[in-house]
Amino acid sequence: MWDRRHVISIDDFSREDIEDVLKNTAKMDEYLEKGNVPELMKGKILATLFFEPSTRTRLSFEAAMQRLGGTVIGFSDPSATSIKKKETTADTVRMAAAYADVIAMRHPYPGAAKLAAQVSSVPILNGGDGSNQHPTQTLLDLYTIKKELGTLDGIKIAMVGDLKYGRTVHSLCTALKLFDATFKFISPEQLRMPDTYKRGLTYEETTELDVSDADVVYVTRIQAERFPDPAEYEKLKGFYVINKKVVSTMKEKSIIMHPLPRVDEIHYEVDSDPRAKYFKQAYYGVPTRMALIAMVMGAI
């Protein structure tokens, strides 16, 4: 079922699919912890096609492949490739598919990952296509919640910040709906969660930063690059700040997450709080992507 599968959108995942990935991620996490990772990808090549910059996603895909004994080729600066000579995305993907066994791709245009899946002879792992989808981020977010809280079922998650443009929160809504989560959307009026993602959810919506009843506080950056009007961005940046005072109101058994990079929405003084899990969350990107690579390659 997983062999040769493309990972394009979290919308394509059933609850069982997600549980499969989380189970395998837990295995990889354990291998990493014990330092005995099997070389499941020995002799295999991952191509990382990064048509726009990324730090965490690219590095964790590369680390994941190398931990599994495979090797990596690719680019992270399209200006140094034939794309500058106006090669199409489709042709670049076809070429990479001829050189590698699996492709991880990030692209500024929404929908590019689906196009890549249509033309590629090897599995595509979508590492983010514009404002559209970033399924491996969603899966690592789910793994973080499951690992740190022990369950995904029936949790209450407060999403804070830019809920309009933030793709991570959109995909997380879609996925957590399958686990009967309840939602609290905390954002400025201008950055509210779009209706399309709220359909079928149990949720409340507010501008007030009250996270006292949440199991998960998922904080997002106000993304300057998504704003058509820079003046609007200036007005909203720094709207919410999670500091020690806010954290002191949170439940003892709760967690703070952030897809990173952060700007000023989580104060550095919070980093040492045991509920701050955002760096662990970034780390879980490696076992999650190890699991996905091994699964689509039919190795587990």
């Binding site: 106006k86 199409t88 995305t89 489709a90 692209h107 245009y109 929404p110 929908g111 689906k114 404002s131």
Partner: peptide
């Protein structure tokens, strides 16, 4: 046509 100008279907010369 997709109304999102950044959609890959609006990129020139892509076979889509």
């Amino acid at each position: 046509k997709c109304i999102n100008p950044k959609c890959i279907t609006n990129a020139p010369r892509e076979p889509v």
